[in-house]
């Protein structure tokens, strides 16, 4: 089985978000970058499947050379090889077009992404890829089993789940529950240095939309404390002041 896992280079989850003075770009000063946590879940599941059934796992990232460290980490976790499309990821449409352009004649049986990246939270790439490549796509998947060329997936829905069957090839976006992320071991880290990382130049993509400004939410006012002996007072405040019950 030939698997492609799409990984995004995102700020660590503990990062305090700041923007540059023009408010149109993220200030990366002092920020630690990681593999998008959902992509790490996808990568782990891809490794579990290929370890059990045979096959290869390629990771692909859209980024400039500064994302190589993140790609090497994916190789250390266990990916076979890596591809970097040498471009700044403008938006999800741009990213999906690059991945589709690379993947279309590579014969992947399975393409996995995370359910969304934790920076722009678009949750788009899996479905965009599905449409661009005319393949089925299943979003926000918490269980993925493959047997004899057919996948059984559990997709999250409001208040429950849907069990889906789909023949390969297919595209799925991984959510929590699909796998427990792995920590690379020393052997993995050593071997990652010599695994192939191919750099590919990007294709042209039409510009459909632009982020014109970022803004941070205003903080809440001072918290109103109620004594643990006067819980009734909280209920009154939520009714008469906050008007939420």
């Amino acid at each position: 089985m030939k698997v492609l896992v799409c990984i995004s280079n995102v700020p660590d989850t503990t990062t305090k978000i700041n923007f540059n003075d023009d408010k149109t770009s993220f200030n990366t000063t002092g920020v630690q970058f990681i593999i998008n946590p959902y992509d790490e879940i996808a990568l782990t599941r891809a490794l579990e499947l290929t370890e059990a059934q045979g096959g290869t796992v390629t990771v692909i990232n859209i980024g400039d050379p500064s994302t190589d460290a993140t790609i090497r980490k994916a190789l250390a976790i266990g990916a076979t090889d890596a591809v970097r499309i040498n471009a700044i990821p403008r938006d999800a449409y741009f990213v999906a077009t690059q991945i589709a352009g690379y993947a279309k004649d590579q014969g992947f049986d399975l393409i996995l992404t995370g359910r969304e990246s934790i920076d722009y939270n678009g949750a788009q790439v899996a479905s965009l890829l599905g449409e661009m490549m005319d393949l089925p796509s299943i979003s926000i998947v918490k269980s993925l089993q493959i047997e004899g060329g057919t996948a059984t997936l559990e997709r999250e829905i409001e208040g429950g789940k849907e069990v889906i069957s789909c023949p390969l090839p297919l595209i799925a976006s991984a959510s929590e529950g699909m796998a427990e992320p792995r920590i690379p071991n020393m052997r993995g880290i050593m071997s990652a240095r010599t695994k192939p990382l191919t750099v590919v130049e990007p294709v042209e993509v039409p510009n459909l939309q632009n982020i014109i400004k970022f803004e941070k939410p205003e903080g809440r006012g001072q918290v109103k404390l109620v004594s643990a002996d006067e819980v009734n007072k909280l209920v009154d405040l939520l009714h008469s002041e906050a008007k939420t019950i």
Binding site: P11, I17, D119, N207, Q209
Partner: peptide, 20 residues
């Protein structure tokens, strides 16, 4: 045609101009 959405998982907002 600018629309606001959450970004950085709730830590910020992004204003997106939809030019298409």
């Amino acid at each position: 045609f600018t629309v606001r959405k959450g970004a950085f998982s709730g830590k910020a907002f992004a204003d997106v101009s939809m030019s298409a």
